[in-house]
Design a protein around this nucleic acid. Sequence first.
DNA 1: AGTTTTCCTAGTAATATGATGGGAAAGATA
DNA 2: TATCTTTCCCATCATATTACTAGGAAAACT
Lengths: 160, 160
Amino acid sequence: MQAVHISAKADYGMRALLELTASYLENPKQLVKGDAISKAQGIPVKFLEGILRQLRQSGIVASQRGAEGGYRLDRSPNEVSIADVVRALDGPLAAVRGQRPEDVEYVGPSEHLKEVWVALRAAMRDVLEHITLADVAANNLPAPISALLDEPGAWQRRIG
Amino acid sequence: MQAVHISAKADYGMRALLELTASYLENPKQLVKGDAISKAQGIPVKFLEGILRQLRQSGIVASQRGAEGGYRLDRSPNEVSIADVVRALDGPLAAVRGQRPEDVEYVGPSEHLKEVWVALRAAMRDVLEHITLADVAANNLPAPISALLDEPGAWQRRIG
DNA sequence: AGTTTTCCTAGTAATATGATGGGAAAGATA
DNA sequence: TATCTTTCCCATCATATTACTAGGAAAACT
């Protein structure tokens, strides 16, 4: 339905990781139980389990089973970008009709449409690859990105 | 599957409009038949029909029925942005779990996640609202946008 | 009339999304 | 060893979306 859609998985994943970031900043080895994350952020437990498993398989999260088990970040929160998280959970950032932007071929007057999609992907990368979990936790976004938030209308939806 | 997905509808729609742009530049009142667009761009006819109808309802395209009928742009191609087209065909540019980025609420350590999604949307708007059909047809993108294409790796996919 | 072309409604197969359920495996404690 | 806890893994499911397709009504022109 929408050109950019942050899925429930990516949104829940980010929120779970921000809970783990808070815990990491207290003590990097500290484990947090799935159930605790689920309750703190209102995420369905079994759905969250699957998300955390995917994040572990991507090397972002570490886990331990059993009593006293749980999850923690496996990397420093300033080494995990939003793009890392979104790619781990939803796959490649951008696609055009299911293909990579650089792979689609155009003929005639639409010859240069590819450039548009590649530029769009580059713009997204510039945002998502330069924000880390630590940035969001500290509410301290990189300057070029907070500049985007100061643009007129950034916080409003567009009216036709 | 992907955070940004340019749907078949949006992609086909852009290509159809670029065909109409070429025709417009020859003669602004000239009509092009759906069948001709379909063949020129390899788009399924009946699917294209629906797309063109949506574009007409959004005031981007004008149409005429009957023999000697067809489609044409209803506005100058330098007054139609990519964002206009994508919004007409796929709805709002950005969503988080189906909601508008400014509407989602976060608690605890994810309090400032909203800013991230709003910044992402702003970055997309900066690209899509500033490129027009005329720009793409003339292969003459605004300077800040072609700068994105010169960034290292812009044309390559990211390797994990 | 007859032909052409757009307009409109409905339907459909394949896939993705957002979950849920049952139990196996691993680790801790008694 | 037994037991409890917590993650891991597989399978399933309802709903929605996507990318089309079918059939015909409604205009416009000859």
